[in-house]
C-alpha cells in the first residue's frame, strides 16, 4: 500500500515539474519552515549526533568502521546501478553492477571493497537523480532535522530507496534484532562520515543555514548536469573594473 502511495506521490511531484529558478534562495520557498527545522536540528547535532558519533568511533575499530561503510556503500551502489540504467547511463550502471557483484560475492556481502582496489569507479547515482533526469527540479528545498538538507525530489527518491532496500527485505525485516543493529550501524556510519567537517563550515560560513543550502543545491545540480545556478551567478555581472 505504501508503495502505491509513494508511486502516486512521485508522479504528482513530477507533474508539478518544479524546475529550478536558477536562484538558490528562490528554490527555497519554504525558508521560514526550514529555518525553524534547522533551529531544532542544531542542538540535536551538538548534543545527540556528535556524542553518538564519538562513541561509535571509540568502540568501533577503524577496520570495523571501514567494513561497515563498505557494506552500506555496496547497497548504495546497487541503487546507483538501477538509477544509472534507467537514465541510460550504461557505463556508470555497468560499473555499479560490476562492483555489486564483485563486492557481494568475493567481498563477503559487501564488507570488503575489492571493486575499488580494482579501480571500478562508483557511479554515485541515486533515485533523486533519476527523478531529476525525468524532469523534477530542486524546488522546494527542505531541511529535515538530523537528516539534513534535501529537496522534495531527493527526499522522495530517498524514501523510495529505503523501501526498496535489501534492509527492508523480509529476511532481514523479520529479524528485529538484526534489522535494528544494521539500521543503527547505518545511521552511525552516515553520521560519522563527515560530521566533524561541520567545524570547517563554522569557520567559513557567515550563516550556516544559507551555506549548507547553497552547497547542497549546487552539488545536486552538478550531479544532475543542471548548470542553471552557475549561469545565473554570472549573468547580472558585467566585466568592468
Amino acid at each position: 500500500m505504501i508503495r502505491v502511495w509513494l508511486m502516486g506521490a512521485t508522479f504528482l511531484l513530477l507533474a508539478a515539474g518544479c524546475a529550478s529558478t536558477g536562484s538558490l534562495a528562490e528554490d527555497d520557498p519554504l525558508e521560514p519552515v526550514n529555518r525553524a527545522m534547522f533551529t531544532i536540528h542544531q542542538p540535536l547535532e551538538t548534543y545527540v549526533m556528535r556524542p553518538i558519533v564519538d562513541v561509535y568511533e571509540v568502540i568501533t575499530p577503524t577496520v570495523g568502521q571501514r567494513i561497515i561503510a563498505n557494506f552500506f556503500n555496496n547497497i548504495d551502489d546497487l541503487f546507483s546501478g538501477v538509477s544509472g540504467l534507467l537514465q541510460g547511463k550504461l557505463d556508470s550502471a555497468g560499473h555499479d553492477f560490476g562492483r555489486v557483484i564483485v563486492n557481494t560475492s568475493f567481498g563477503l556481502g559487501g564488507m570488503i571493497d575489492f571493486a575499488s582496489d580494482a579501480d571500478i569507479p562508483r557511479g554515485n547515482q541515486d533515485f533523486g537523480l533519476l527523478l531529476a533526469h525525468w524532469g523534477a527540479g530542486p524546488r522546494p528545498y527542505l531541511f529535515i532535522p538530523v537528516m539534513g538538507p534535501t529537496t522534495l525530489r531527493d527526499g522522495a527518491g530517498m524514501i523510495g530507496q529505503t523501501y526498496a532496500s535489501p534492509m527492508s527485505w523480509r529476511m532481514i525485516d523479520e529479524h528485529v534484532a538484526l534489522r535494528n543493529t544494521l539500521q543503527g550501524l547505518g545511521i552511525a556510519n552516515a553520521m560519522s562520515s563527515g560530521i566533524k567537517t561541520l567545524d570547517t563550515l563554522d569557520r567559513i560560513a557567515l550563516d550556516r543555514y544559507t551555506f549548507i543550502r547553497s552547497a547542497y543545491l549546487q552539488r545536486r545540480a552538478y550531479q544532475a548536469d543542471d548548470d542553471s545556478y552557475q549561469r545565473a551567478a554570472f549573468e547580472d555581472f558585467d566585466e568592468e573594473e
Binding site: 538558490l24 534562495a25 560560513a205 557567515l206 550563516d207 544559507t210 551555506f211 543550502r213 547553497s214 552547497a215 549546487q218 552539488r219 545540480a221 552538478y222 550531479q223 545556478y229 552557475q230 551567478a233
Partner: peptide, 17 residues
C-alpha cells in the same frame, strides 16, 4: 569543488546578510 562554487556559495551568504 564537486560542482560547488566558492563564489556562488558566498554570493548566497552575502546576499542573505
Amino acid at each position: 569543488v564537486g560542482g560547488v562554487s566558492l563564489v556562488t556559495n558566498y554570493r548566497d551568504d552575502f546576499n542573505q546578510q
